[in-house]
Amino acid sequence: MAAASAAEANSVSNDEFLVRDDVPGLLAALKEMKDGLDLVRGKVEAITRKVKANQLPAGNGIGYLEAKNHMLLGYCQDIVYYLLRKTKGLSVDGHPVVRSLVEIRLFLEKIRPIDKKAEYQIQKLTNAADNATAREKAGNAEVKGKDGHSDEEDLLMYRPNPEMMDTKPGPDGQDTDGVYRPPKFMPTSMDDEEKRHKKDSRRDKAIARVATENPYIKEIIDDAADRPEEWKETVGDESREFGRYMRQREEQEKQEEELFTRAPVTKRDKQMEKRIRRQLHGLGGLTDGFDLGMNMLLGGDKEDDGGSSKPHGKSGNRKKHLKSSKKRKRH
């Protein structure tokens, strides 16, 4: 019995020690909390005075922001009530203040994506207010100075504006006055005889060019005209460039024979002849032994069907080669 009483006295003494040790800390904590709450209360009262004096009118604002403000203010009230219960030394387990704190916290966390997405619209409205303030200042300056019209660019003019649409005209599409107005047509171009002639002549020229340049068409035409077949030195199809070159050389040869003069050969002509000779793929060797160029060789093949009008050569060497190179077939 004495031992139990001694143990109890020892426990009470231990508690007394704990209380005595923690007195300064508790005193400091209580004072700190009181100062913090006094500061908060001062700020709250300042805002309340502003709201009551209507210095912060928010009636036209966004209801969503108003709801957010009310939730955060409710959260602060819950915290202060929690402090009150703690100060009284009462228990908070099972009290609805904890539920309320959790609920408001969940709301504020869940609406965070809405905040981020709605930021653009809020920013736009804020910019509109800033522009209005700047315009008022500019308007005051203009009134003091001169009557100038400010045509600053307003980004809000790009909204749809139903008032700007025209009123629909009458059902018949005519004005009420008696003046007749012809209907409008698309501009059209008339047929032209001269253009048609030009077009026809151009088509004829194209057909003639095809008849002379295209070997297939040329063969068909020659067969229809019953002309003799020509012997060609080349193997395979001739290229377009080769054909053009040959025709050019033939014309030149003909003119030289008629005028009895030799046209000067330019360096470009020589280069072209060399390149075309190289294109024969080995057949160039056939002309190695001849003194004259390839043009003379090929020029000798062509003769008129009307008669045998040979050129009058001044040298026997020329006649010799012409005779030996004659390879024309007769039907």
Partner: peptide, 11 residues
């Protein structure tokens, strides 16, 4: 829009 913007700023 200006009035609404001012209210939003206050909020």
């Amino acid at each position: 829009d200006a009035l609404r913007g001012q209210a939003v700023k206050n909020q």
